[in-house]
Design a protein around this nucleic acid. Sequence first.
DNA 1: AATAGTAACTTGTGAAATGCAAGTGAGAAA
DNA 2: TTTCTCACTTGCATTTCACAAGTTACTATT
Lengths: 123, 123
Amino acid sequence: MRSPCPISNTLDIIGDKWTLLVMRDILMFEKSLYSEFLSSWENISTNILAERLKRLEVAGLISKESYQTNPVRYHYSATPAGKTLKPIIRAMGKWGLENLSGTRKPTKHDLESLGARNRRSSL
Amino acid sequence: MRSPCPISNTLDIIGDKWTLLVMRDILMFEKSLYSEFLSSWENISTNILAERLKRLEVAGLISKESYQTNPVRYHYSATPAGKTLKPIIRAMGKWGLENLSGTRKPTKHDLESLGARNRRSSL
DNA sequence: AATAGTAACTTGTGAAATGCAAGTGAGAAA
DNA sequence: TTTCTCACTTGCATTTCACAAGTTACTATT
């Protein structure tokens, strides 16, 4: 722990280029599979993705469950604590839209080509 | 630019361990001098601090002005665009306080020992 | 006049994080 | 039996970072 500052400690968890993007995919785009995270716009590399998923699980922000055997397949989902990151992500989205040219909300077409499956169910 | 996503683009600017801490110091603790940033809890190293100040200036989030000659001394301050980062920082502070044990708001004593000078004026 | 001190950096070097490509293991499909 | 997919792991080159020391310009002390 670098300090007792809540901002600094939050940054120790989500203060890098990739962690919050994974949470964005889970929380905003309802992605849950490794392959779905990989298919995001930003081209995260496989080793970084695997490492971030582990760290997020250890931090208690996401959980991993197998949803089938033969073969075993996993899906990731946000824990209650993980879901409370939404205001931070929304604040960043708002800031980007208002301050960075070239940014935009994803279109329907974007969402389809992003690999997020249509799941009306689980949220 | 990795993608048109406003979240991703915001992270390209502030998505690292140090940039937002500098903005925290400016926006929340009213620091403005290089030496004040150095005196923060988190012990940023001089080269990283100098680099981040440059990047933030290039990004238009802070501005640097000399406030005296003989010897030349500079102070940094947030631009209007920089000030709009406050909601993000506040959201992180809130999240940290609610989710990370050991975090707390700075006490009066903290603020004094942090090197932030008493300036009632400029905010 | 010489030494020490301070502010705001810059430079050098080793360690750690990241990006990219390729490889792995378990099962599914052809 | 070969090929394919998913969910990773491993290896290696590049980039970023941390730590220490050095620099420049000026002030303050002896």
